[in-house]
Amino acid sequence: MPLRVTFVAAARSAPLLAERFEDDRPLDQAGWEEVQRVAGDLLPLAAAELRYCSPTPRSRATGDALGYAPLVQPALRDCDMGRWRGLTLGEAMAREPDAVDAWLADPRATPHGGESLLAFVSRVGGWLDTRPAEDGGRIVAVAEPAVVRAALVYALKAPPATYWNIDVRPLSVCTVTGRAGRWNLRLDGAPAQSPRS
């Protein structure tokens, strides 16, 4: 039986255009309200044998509010953005436009002094590949949208540039099934109460 890993994107901590690299702010009021709206649809995921989350405050709070009581997984942390930590993309672009362009164009680039996109995808994929899968089972992981995108790129064996073409909204859900090195994306029907953007 294949392993089933369901990722739930953390609720928001700021309006989407104000998202910051390695954002460690707690859920904002809109984030709490979104969690309350979808809690009934996402609560069944609490039956997973293993429940994890990214180490950010909003991921932990989202998991707790959904009744998952998740264990923090350092490997599910956001990409290390070095000196751009805490900046929006626009702020980084205003300060270092050539560096941002290089980072967006080359998955191996680390102009910010942190982690490359390729290393980030590999780290998240390594976590996915080391989940216990002897008898199948279900796992739920509440993670930052960037982490969910990285997991999908890895699971689909897609080129790293695909990362920029995946839009993960707060509280969206996606599932991969399989085992180390052999993952499939599973798309289920949308919840009755989808989160607002």
Results as ranks from 00 to 15, higher is better:
140 V>G: 11
128 L>N: 02
150 A>W: 07
178 G>E: 06
128 L>H: 02
158 A>W: 01
172 S>W: 13
133 A>F: 13
161 A>H: 15
153 V>M: 01
167 D>Y: 06
187 L>K: 14
194 S>Y: 11
151 A>H: 00
139 I>S: 04
191 P>Q: 12
175 T>Y: 07
133 A>E: 14
182 R>G: 08
184 N>D: 11
151 A>W: 00
193 Q>V: 12
158 A>L: 02
136 G>E: 13
140 V>K: 08
170 P>D: 14
169 R>G: 12
179 R>A: 14
190 A>L: 15
194 S>G: 09
179 R>L: 06
187 L>F: 12
191 P>L: 13
177 T>V: 05
134 E>P: 04
180 A>N: 01
138 R>A: 11
131 R>N: 08
149 R>P: 12
186 R>W: 09
132 P>F: 02
188 D>E: 15
134 E>R: 14
161 A>Y: 10
151 A>D: 01
128 L>R: 00
153 V>H: 02
184 N>G: 07
146 A>H: 00
157 K>R: 10
192 A>K: 04
172 S>E: 15
165 N>R: 15
138 R>H: 12
194 S>D: 05
137 G>C: 08
149 R>E: 12
175 T>A: 07
151 A>C: 01
140 V>C: 11
183 W>C: 03
145 P>F: 05
179 R>Y: 11
162 T>E: 08
139 I>V: 15
145 P>E: 07
187 L>H: 13
144 E>F: 02
137 G>S: 11
169 R>L: 12
